[in-house]
Every structure is written in C-alpha cells, then in structure tokens.
C-alpha cells in the first residue's frame, strides 16, 4: 500500500487582531511578496539598461527588448487602441507568468489561491464595464435587452459570469498543478518515484500549463475589453 502525505493547503504563518477579527499572513502573501520583489528587481535592471541603451543591443538589453516587443505585438494584434492598454496587459502578463512559474522554486504559487485570481478577474470586470459605459454610453445597457427584453436575466448572468469563469480557469489549473505535485512528492515509500519523474511533471504542470493559462487570461481580457469598444 502506498501511503501519501499530501501537503498543499495554504498555511497561515502569522496572525493578528484587527477590528475584532483574526487575520492571517499566509504562504500566499509570502510567495506574492517574493514575486513582487523579483519583478521590481527586473524593472529596475531594465530601466538601468535602457538609460544607457545602444543602437546595437547587447546582453540584458536584448532580453528587455524581446519582452516588450512580444507584449506589444500581442496587444497590437488583438485590440483597436493598443497604446491605451499595453501597460496594463503587460503588467498582468508578467505578474501572472512569474506567479505561475514560482511553483518551480518550491513556493506555493499565489495563483493557486482563489483570493488572488478573483481580484484579477474583478479588475477585468471593472475595465469591461468602464470601457463599455465610456465608449457606448447608453448602448452598453441597451445591449442587455437584446435581442428581446425577455433575455435580460440571461444577459445579466452572462455579464456576471465573465470574471468568475476567468478567475476559476486560472485558479483551477494552477491548483490542479499544485495538488498533483504535492501528491507526487508525498508518496512516502517510493524514493524511486522522486528521481527524474518530477522534472517532467514540473515541465508540464508549471511551465507549459502556466504559460498557456497566462496567455489565455491576457487574451480573454483583451477580447472582452475590445468587444465593448
């Protein structure tokens, strides 16, 4: 019989009292702070290398230019006003990508916590509604009653389901990855199972799945926002 000590839950590290409630600093916060620090270091390094940029890029400047060009092309091919949204989509892409890849370093990925992905989904929801009202004015609300007013409840549910499906997609993918990795590492008597095979699992669940889901999240955000413009 194979015993399994799976350990994939979010762990509370420090608790404190505020307004009569107990709040916890969890492993998600720690991972997220590490991810933010990594992104900040990257941003400062990119800024420094761009200040003394040369015509023929070398070294780190190459990397920065590839990243910016790739993100720019992705936004340009999918949106009508790429300049307005390039900053937000770029930030979103890099943040989710580093979050998903943090599983490779043994952290518990922040995107495997529904609190994180729901916030990202709600930001997208607010952007959709804001741009819809700004660009279509009353037509934004009129679209809820089309093709006939009887469809109003269905259209309303459709609007509200957008952020939920967006966030659940990312969350469930990363949670599945985290759980499968934890189960595999938790197999107690089989030391052989821990040699080599986890590398393939990490390559599929963290690298492949993480990159695809990052791309899908950004792509759907762009499509939804672009629809309303």
């Amino acid at each position: 019989m194979i015993l399994c000590e799976a350990d994939f839950a979010i762990k509370g590290l420090v608790n404190y009292q505020m307004f009569g409630h107990t709040f916890w600093l969890t492993s998600t916060h720690v991972s997220m702070i590490i991810v933010t620090v990594v992104l900040l270091v990257f941003a400062f390094a990119a800024n420094r290398s761009m200040k003394k940029a040369k015509d023929v890029p070398t070294g780190f400047q190459n990397v920065v230019e590839i990243v910016v060009e790739m993100l720019g092309n992705m936004v340009k091919t999918n949106m009508k006003q790429p300049r307005k949204f390039m900053n937000y989509i770029g930030t979103l892409f890099l943040f989710i990508l580093i979050c998903n890849l943090s599983g490779l370093l043994g952290l518990r990925g922040p995107t495997a916590d529904y609190g994180v992905t729901l916030c990202l989904g709600l930001i997208t929801f607010c952007m959709i509604q804001y741009n819809g009202i700004k660009c279509q004015k009353a037509g934004h609300f009129k679209a809820l009653f089309e093709p006939i007013p009887l469809f109003f409840p269905i259209n309303l549910i459709g609007e509200i389901a957008t952020p939920i499906s967006l966030s659940l997609r990312l969350f469930a993918n990363m949670l599945a990855g985290t759980i499968i990795m934890a189960l595999w590492y938790g197999i107690i008597p089989l030391v052989v199972a821990k040699l080599g095979i986890p590398a393939f699992l990490h390559a599929y669940l963290d690298l492949f799945s993480g990159c695809i889901q990052t791309y899908v999240f950004c792509m759907l955000t762009m499509v939804y926002v672009d629809d309303k413009m």
Binding site: A9, S165, L168, R169, A176, I179, I212, Y215
Partner: peptide
C-alpha cells in the same frame, strides 16, 4: 488551437474544483 483547447478545458476544471471541494 492551444487557446481554444485551454478554453474548452474550463468545464472539466469546474468538475475538478467540485471534486476537490468534496474531497478536501
């Protein structure tokens, strides 16, 4: 194809979430 597949996967993942909630 990868984009479409990732979107099609969603319904299966809803089932997975339900299973996780029931189990853990």
């Amino acid at each position: 194809m990868l984009l479409g597949q990732a979107v099609a996967e969603t319904t299966g993942l809803y089932g997975l979430v339900v299973a996780f909630i029931l189990m853990f």
